[in-house]
Simulated scan of single mutants.
Amino acid sequence: MPYAGSSPVVYLAMRTRPPYDGRRSRAEGGQGRPCGDAPALAYPRGVQVMSEAEWRERAAAHEARVDVVTAGHLARRRDHRAHPVEDFLFTYYSFKPAQLRRFHPGAGTSLAAAARAPHTDWRFYAVDGDLVGVDVDAFTAARGDTLRFVRELLVRTAERPGRFGCFGLHEWAMVYRLDPSDVRHSGWPLRLGGAGTDAVVESHRVACSHFDAYRFFTPEAAPLNAVTPTRESQTALEQPGCLHAGMDLYKWAHKLVPAVSSDLVMDAFELARDIRALDMRAAPYDLRELGYDPVRIETPEGKAEYAAAQRGFSARGQALRARLVEAVDRVLVPA
């Protein structure tokens, strides 16, 4: 939710930024083609200044927000314990809790009282008089390929219709015909046992469109998938109904820090956290001991429950995609 600050907004050095045309570099596997029909937005090259009192208040609120969602993971890490659901965002994704806790206002917003702001020592920040803010030119020079790839992926995903008939079978395909000792979460039983789990996979059409889920399929399960996702085909296959595409919005947001604001990163984190809970409730594992009641996707009722939740997450994800594209467009301009 946007912060409703009381201090006035000041704009400096106003001029219009040319819109980014959505072209992807050849180094990223693209052909320099426009990114769908979605035009990049033009923004004034202005600086929104946050007073010292305001940025300190915002930073404290952000740190408190992060502390709530990381406390359990940090406690388990100290005790050398693992949680199959709640630790995922800290083990699969590369952003550490300490990195998440840093407050970033995002590109286009500078902080007053630069001498007292820790940002002066952080990468991709620059001081201009009494202000410190994201050095957009330096960030674009260093991360331009990532910016262009992420923008194309987000726009092309957003413009496709969502598909809601996969029923989370990717998690089942990851344990299909595996020896119990090789199952990723081997400390937790399979609800239907090994044979029952295999039967669910064999009696359904598996249609996973997300490469980073598909690549964990067992060798026996991979040929059963309706498509063969690859890293190169990611922008051609990703669609907004996919739970993993929704979780990955957090990945794209944190990869673009500090150009992306901490508010947006945390909104993406919370979506990913909520999706992960559904992902594992619909998985073949029995996690009731941890408080996760199963979504029995092998039944008609479970399928309906899963698809309804999936649609809700898809709507939240589409809103975040639009915000991320807007954030990218604020920086991805000619130097």
Rank of each mutant, 00 (worst) to 15 (best):
F313L: 09
G129K: 06
H210E: 14
S25G: 08
Y176E: 01
V68C: 01
V260S: 08
L41Y: 03
P105T: 04
Y285T: 07
A245L: 10
R23T: 15
R273V: 01
G108T: 03
L332F: 06
C208A: 04
A42S: 14
D67K: 15
V265W: 02
L41I: 14
T299R: 06
K255S: 09
P334A: 15
D274C: 05
R78N: 01
W55F: 06
R288K: 13
G133Y: 04
V201L: 08
V66S: 03
T197S: 10
L237V: 07
R78Y: 09
R45Q: 14
Y93K: 12
A283S: 14
R205I: 04
A272W: 04
L111T: 10
D37W: 04
P39F: 09
Y125G: 00
Y214D: 08
W122F: 12
Y306L: 07
R273Q: 11
G194K: 01
D87M: 15
R33G: 06
G133M: 06
M247C: 13
V331T: 04
E159W: 00
R101A: 15
R65P: 00
T299I: 02
A42W: 01
S203V: 05
R276V: 04
M14P: 10
Q99V: 10
L147Y: 01
G36P: 07
V10W: 12
T235S: 08
G36R: 13
R17G: 04
A107N: 07
T16S: 13
V134W: 04
